[in-house]
Amino acid sequence: MVRFVARRVLFSVVVLVAASAVIFVLTRLVPGSPALILLGPEAKAEQVQDLERRLGLDRPLAVQYARWISDVVLHGDFGRSYISGLPITSEILRTLPITVEIVLLAFVFCLVVAVPLGIVSALYEDGLIDHVARIVAIAGVSVPGFWLGLMLIVCGAVHLGWFPPGGYTPLSMGLGAHLQSLVLPAFSLGIYYTAIISRMTRSSLVEVLRQDYIRTARALGLSRTRIVAYALKNALIPVVSVAAMSVGYMFGWAIIIEQVFNIAGLSRSLLSALFQRDYYMVQAVVLVITIVFVGANLAAEILYRALNPRVRGTA
């Protein structure tokens, strides 16, 4: 098990390094020097060169990359945004928690709804709940989250007035108001994954209930509750793994959802940075999100291994 974890962690690190290099090069691919953008088109050539030298932009690409990545890894320092001059790390630390919170809320909602729904669907296979759940799941996977968000704003905020139409209400303004501002975005974000996880739970449990070892349990007179508990332990293994992965995916879609609800989370950092051609910021945000995503996938793989006694012992 330890060997497996070590291998996967190493692999993830390699992937991250490669990704960081790619995003670094990508941001440098664009024509037009950042110095020129900073100084404006009227700047004189020496001014531009001078600024470039100060910003370290005249060094070879590999050296620039090395400096940047060592700053990130060793000091957690993503450098400064050359648009605003402010340190990027603090900007990210300001916006990241908001996105994290939305994702976490969506995730919790997802688990709380999807898993029981999937279980009930499986236990009462072909029953009314099963059929309704299937239809709702197909809708949940098909309706775009950002449109759902828009519609929810129209209904929930404009017409019913139950929720704020957007924006982020910080905790300092009260827990209730804070949560209220997050309900609609988290819901819009989580629906897709709720649908997927509920179907996955259902099919996994149905499959397990068909197995010979469940027949053995029934034949030996174990109570229905105990049998379901047994089956769940087997059935939830892949579900846990998928749930871990979905956290990673949710981070990506949060970017879009935040735009719908005008929430100043990571999406704000990324998109305005793209718009302003603030490439250091873009690099940083993409890398951060990639780290989260790689981490989520890694967690999923490790969890799957760890929960599965049959493969746990092997390398």
């Binding site: 197995q211 010979d212 070892y213 469940i214 027949r215 053995t216 349990a217 034949a219 030996l220 047994y230 332990k233 087997n234 293994i237 929960l307 599965n308 006694p309 049959r310």
Partner: peptide, 14 residues
């Protein structure tokens, strides 16, 4: 009590 045919799949692996 009953014992079935296939021992490889009749025990819960988890």
């Amino acid at each position: 009590s009953i014992v079935f045919q296939d021992p490889m799949t009749s025990l819960n692996p988890a």
